[in-house]
């Protein structure tokens, strides 16, 4: 059992969706209003189960909380331009999937400062854009659109493969006539084919 006064010195065990556990300081954990409402006064006997979120996400969220332990009390949203270098690095090193996981976890844990910075970061994606540009930023392709896109890509790849095969045949015929040593001829054709196929696939 942990008392609120001593919670900053105490470490809590957090359990992730994988069943893994790791330590978080009481001071960091207290930034979560969800934790405060659920465990701060009654304490926790075993690991605190935040099993809707994976270990990587929870560690990222609590990394933020540990870092902001010594910052002054949160007093509402801060403009992105006012973020520290550490904050910016923290956000910049996340890919989109991790960023979304962090927002979801931060929202569940009700960590106001982190949620607010995440929201500001998303709002910033929309700033200075017109409607068409905003659509590009926020609209995910539908399942039909994804399927159609995949079909087009498959067709392109098949066409590229056909062209490559035809080119290989032609090259084989031409280079045979030039009386190259057989070994060299095969290698040259292979190299050409690989280059061509790769260039088609990358288009």
């Amino acid at each position: 059992m942990t008392s609120p006064a001593s919670s900053s010195e105490v470490k809590y065990l957090i359990e992730s969706s994988e069943g893994n556990t790791f330590d978080v300081s009481g001071a960091a954990l207290r930034q979560s209003n969800t934790f405060n409402a659920m465990f701060l006064n009654i304490g926790a006997d075993g690991p605190i189960p935040f099993t809707d979120y994976n270990e990587a996400t929870l560690k990222k969220v609590f990394e933020y909380c540990e870092h902001s332990v010594n910052e002054e009390n949160y007093s509402g949203p801060k403009h992105q331009d006012d973020l520290s270098k550490w904050d910016l690095n923290f956000f910049n090193e996340m890919d989109q999937k991790m960023f979304i996981d962090v927002i979801n976890a931060s929202n569940f844990l009700d960590i106001e400062r982190l949620t607010s910075y995440c929201c500001e970061r998303i709002a910033r994606m929309l700033r200075g854009k017109n409607t068409q540009e905003m659509i590009k930023v926020i609209t995910l392709p539908t399942a039909e659109e994804l399927e159609a896109k995949q079909k087009v890509e498959e067709k392109k790849a098949a066409a590229a493969k056909k062209v490559a095969e035809k080119a290989a045949e032609t090259a084989e015929k031409t280079e045979t006539l030039e009386e190259l040593p057989v070994q060299q001829l095969v290698q040259t054709t292979r190299n050409k084919l690989t280059r061509k196929y790769l260039s088609f696939s990358n288009e």
Partner: peptide
Amino acid sequence: MSSPFPILRLPRLVQCEIFKLLN
């Protein structure tokens, strides 16, 4: 984060916070 951002798949409270930040 260059791929489209799924703003409508975020929790409702988060969406609300984002809309509040817009002028």
